[in-house]
Every structure is written in structure tokens, then in C-alpha cells.
Simulated assay, not measured.
Amino acid sequence: MVTAAPPDSVIDEVDLELINALQVTPRGSWAVLGRALDLDPATAARRWRRLTETGLAWVTCTIGPARHHEFCMAYIRVSVAPGSFDSVAATLLEEDSAPYLHHVTGPSPLLVVIAVRNPAAVSAFLRDVLDRLPGVTSYQAEIRTVGYSEPSRWRLDSLDPVRRGRLPPPAGESRGFTVDETDRALYRLLHIDGRTSFADLAAGTGISQATARRRVNRLLDTRHLRMRCDMAQSVSGWPITGVLWVHVPASSLDTVARALGNRAEVRLSCTLSGSANLLVMVWLRTLEGLTEFERVVGELHPGLTIVDRSVCLHTMKQMWRQLDSTGRVVRVFDPNRISFPGVPSPAEEEGLRS
């Protein structure tokens, strides 16, 4: 739980540069980050502490591309009866398998994203959770087939090229190895705070500091683990989220999905199982920007048809963090409850052994 902060908490240009640097190098030392930003390391650390303590920015971890084949993500639009929104949202917020929950415009006001082992587990969620949840009137679920861009790749772009060039390059390529229970414990600690020191990681997992360093670096270098730095959207300069359900002819789907994923506004680009076969989520500077984005991508990709669109009113849950209406973190979910894709929770591990 973070400490309370006034809604008008101020982020200045130096803070934005620091966040951008941490998006590029989430676990960079304060010496490296300070040198890149022309800041004293102690000043950089102090600024970051203020941002995290007020819930305005944070570093966490996600499962990397090397393990994406081990889980299934579904995007589910949920319609609710009048007067039932709060109770349905409160229940879905607590769902361990749901890293995201959005309140959006349109006839289906809740967009819940689940990450589970396989399509059969999606079926179980629909039957055991949504079918039995009072207030849910209908839902429509689609499974992600290919991910092209994800929020961990989105950049604030506050740094000039010179300062960006002072930061270390990204992690290397994937190669196979077996993830064990110690690696899973590291996942959970880094979920709470992606900048947890190697000393604290070692203490939390019962291994040496050198082993913790080696294991974390191996997970990052092989893309089994990906770090990400997030921030409250309200202070990002991109306060509006647009959600577009798009149809693209199969012959050009890969090309269009990749091209959209490379645009600065795009936080998410992934193909889906339905007739709207591409989902695009964008951060925009104004509401008018959604119309402009649609115009530009329509001109660039004439075969693209926007099937449906909505504006996100409130991202209620993001990567197992509860956010307030400004996008600040107000609660971090207990990682021992979370069923990380490809990383069983302690309860699941016990069940697999029994």
C-alpha cells in the first residue's frame, strides 16, 4: 500500500526524464541513471522514492516473450444490469487471474483481461465466474492469438537522444533453460517492486546475493522476464485511452499489426480470435486525438475497418495493481494470490505436487 498523496501531485520535467530512463533501464543503478540524466545519484534516488511512495510511478515485472507460449490471454467485454456495476467490478477486481480491469464507454462497460493456462481455463472462468456473478447480463470473450506490442514497450520519450544513448542496451535473445521455484519466487518479489535490491532478493528467496544477481540477469537476458516502468496516466501528458476493435484482411494482418505496434500512441497491439481480429489500445493527448488517430491509420492502411471503439474511463486494475481515478497505485495485490502466467502460485504448486 502506498501513502496518500494530493491529487495535484506535481511531476516536473526531471521526473519525466527519470521515468523515461527507467522505462529503458528499469533496474539501472542510480549511478548509471544519474550519469545519463546529469543528476547526482542520491537526487535521482530521492526523486524516485517520492514518485513510488505517492503511487505516481513504479517498476514491476511481466512474463517475457520466451514464456508467452505457456499461457492464454482473453479480452472479455462484460455487460451488467442497471445498478450492478459497482458490485460486478468489485468482484472482478479481486480475481487472481485478471491482471487488468477497465471501465469503458459503450454497452459493455467492463473490459476484463485474464491470463490463464489455456483455452479450457478461459472456459472455466466464463462458466465459474461470469455465468455465476449476479448482475452480469452478457459477455463476449476473444482470445489473443499474437501479441505485437505491449505496454512494457511504450515509452514516454522525454529523453533527448544524447541522454538516451548513455543508458545500457536492452536484454539479449532467448535461449532455453528450465525455470524453477527459486525463479518463481524472484518473479513474485520483483512484481511488488521491480527495483528490489539483489540483497533483498537474496534474503527473500534464501539464496546468496551473487546467485540472485546471476538468476535475475539470466531471466532478463533470455527474455523469460521483462521489467516495466509504469506511471499514473493523468500526469503522463497522454491522459486519454482509446480502445479500438479492428478488422484487417488476413493477407495484411501481420503487416498492419506490426506497423500500428510501432506507433508512439499505441500501448497494445494484438490479434484476436473474432471477426474484429485486431485490438489496439492507444494513449492520446486529447479526446479529439482518437478521431485523428483513426483518420491517419485509415489512410495508411486502406483495408483496415474499425468495428467498434470506446474510451477508457478508468483503468481500475493494471498488472495486478489497483489504480485510482487518476491512475495512481493505491494497492498492490499479494503476489502469493496471483496466478502469474507460466508461474504457478504457491497454492497451485502445492496442488500440482499433491
Score class of each variant (00 low, 15 high):
A124T: 13
F125Y: 15
R213Q: 14
T271W: 04
C270H: 15
D128L: 08
V246G: 00
S87K: 10
A21H: 01
A90Y: 05
T3N: 09
V113P: 08
S79T: 09
D38E: 13
S97N: 09
N217P: 06
Y148S: 04
V179Q: 10
L111R: 08
G64F: 06
A81I: 01
T178V: 14
D12R: 02
S29N: 08
P7F: 06
E349S: 11
L352I: 09
W283H: 14
D131M: 09
M316R: 13
V243Q: 11
W320K: 00
P168N: 02
G289K: 01
C229W: 00
A115M: 14
I11F: 11
L201A: 05
I207D: 03
W320S: 00
L225D: 00
L323E: 00
A31D: 15
V235W: 03
W30T: 02
Q318G: 06
T182P: 04
G28H: 04
S97G: 07
R214D: 10
A57F: 01
T54C: 02
H103G: 05
S123T: 15
S345I: 03
V329D: 00
G242K: 02
R188D: 07
V235G: 01
V80Y: 02
I143E: 09
I76S: 05
A276C: 02
A66I: 00
V88S: 05
P302R: 05
L33E: 08
F333P: 00
P107G: 03
E292P: 05
L16Y: 03
P82D: 06
L268C: 09
L201G: 07
W30H: 10
T52Q: 12
P65E: 08
T3G: 12
E173T: 11
L300H: 13
I306S: 08
D131K: 07
A36I: 09
Y139R: 07
Q318H: 15
S325Y: 09
D193E: 12
A212Q: 02
P41Y: 05
Y75K: 14
Q140Y: 15
D128T: 07
A347F: 08
L16Q: 12
H224R: 14
D180F: 05
T43M: 13
R215D: 08
R218E: 12
L56R: 10
G206D: 07
V104H: 04
S123A: 14
L110Y: 03
V104P: 05
V307H: 11
S152I: 09
A124L: 12
D128R: 15
S310F: 00
R47M: 02
P134L: 06
R77L: 13
L37C: 01
A45T: 03
D131T: 03
S108I: 04
R50D: 10
S84Q: 11
H247V: 01
A90V: 02
P161N: 00
D131L: 08
E53G: 10
R321Y: 00
H69T: 12
P344V: 06
R47G: 01
S275P: 12
V122A: 02
P99D: 04
G298A: 14
R223E: 10
R195N: 08
